[in-house]
């Protein structure tokens, strides 16, 4: 069908050689790329540069900008709240990585063919589909003092309940647990797809050689799951550093700012009722961006290598 269509089209334009005709192979990609590049440059590339520039100024968002040089960054060095946020970001990053093995574990548990398994798989994936705002509200209810399910379970086990979100010792862990719920679901689906594509003959061969259980998983299965693991790690790292929604919904950074992360602290400084310190906020964003760039460069480096290998 396509064949006859192409000949028909070709016939209509066979005899019109011109400057366009001769150069279309060179020009066409730029025409196709124009809308994408324009939008991306305006809303992503330019703002990154503008933010970096802004981080050297004092600006309330309306009046004139005052050049400060490195003062915003110097101030960050002595800012207690900045260190709290940075520290919390590190906790987020470390604990969020649990989603990768946990997702693998759930995927292994569900990788069977009993009746109804497909419905189980979709229902396990469910938390990922809901908005983080809703996840945050669900877990706020779960942790709520006096009547929350979690509070009561702890009370039943230990005698005294814990108001997780009001206690600066536990609050960050409580929010991370809420974040892990959809993230594990995401990693699970990546691994389920990966497991689906593991070469069956290799498994059979390994079985004949007597490989079982952990040994099989480690030496035969995991190497074949490497692409899934790579994507799971990427999305989990990005997710951990982007954590904003849950903090905003569940605690608004509290109690006393103890659950802030960099993304939230930046927002607080630049846009919330606490002040419109755009320059200082931009400086925090630049620090977060720098941290993210370490990971992004790593990912890109690996992707470029794969691209070249193809």
């Amino acid at each position: 069908m396509t064949g006859s269509a192409t000949t028909a089209i070709a016939a209509t334009q066979a005899n019109t050689p011109g400057i366009w005709k001769r150069n279309q192979r060179a020009w066409a990609p730029w025409i196709f790329l124009a809308p994408g590049i324009a939008m991306f440059a305006l809303y992503v590339i330019y703002p990154i540069i503008a933010s970096m520039w802004l981080s050297f100024y004092d600006w309330d968002g309306l009046g004139t900008k005052t050049w400060l040089g490195l003062d915003n960054y110097v101030e960050l060095f002595d800012d207690e709240a900045f260190y709290t946020s940075l520290y919390n970001n590190i906790i987020w990053l470390v604990l969020y990585m649990l989603a990768v093995p946990a997702g693998l574990f759930v995927a292994l548990f569900l990788n069977q063919t009993v009746t109804g398994i497909r419905i189980y798989k979709s229902l396990f994936f469910f938390p990922f589909v809901i908005s983080q705002v809703v996840v945050g509200l669900i877990f706020s209810w779960f942790y709520a003092p006096n009547f929350g399910l979690f509070y009561n379970m702890i009370e039943w086990l230990t005698g005294t309940g814990i108001a997780v979100l009001a206690d600066d010792r536990y609050v960050t862990y409580g929010i991370i647990a809420a974040g892990l719920w959809p993230q594990i679901a995401y990693c699970m689906i990546l691994y389920l797809t990966g497991l689906n594509n593991v070469a069956p003959d290799q498994i059979e061969a390994a079985r004949l050689d007597g490989a079982r259980g952990w040994k099989m998983l480690w030496h035969i299965i995991l190497p074949q799951l490497r692409p899934a693991t790579f994507i799971a790690v990427v999305v989990t790292v990005i997710g951990a550093l982007r954590s904003f929604d849950l903090v905003s919904i569940m605690t608004d950074g509290g109690p006393y700012g103890s659950s802030r992360v960099l993304s939230f602290y930046m927002y607080e400084q630049a846009l919330s009722e606490y002040g419109f310190r755009m320059g200082y906020g931009a400086a925090i964003a630049v620090v977060l961006f720098a941290i993210m760039m370490i990971f992004i460069s790593g990912f890109i480096w690996k992707m470029v290598r794969d691209e070249r290998g193809l």
């Binding site: 590049i37 991306f40 590339i45 990005i238 904003f244 964003a285 977060l288 993210m292």
Partner: peptide, 23 residues
């Protein structure tokens, strides 16, 4: 260009926030 698209996709929202809001 491809990797600019990929990398842009991973940046933290906060680095875009103030300029995008201004724009």
């Amino acid at each position: 260009i491809f990797f600019l698209f990929v990398a842009g996709n991973f940046v933290p929202f906060q680095i875009l926030m103030v300029p995008v809001r201004d724009l």
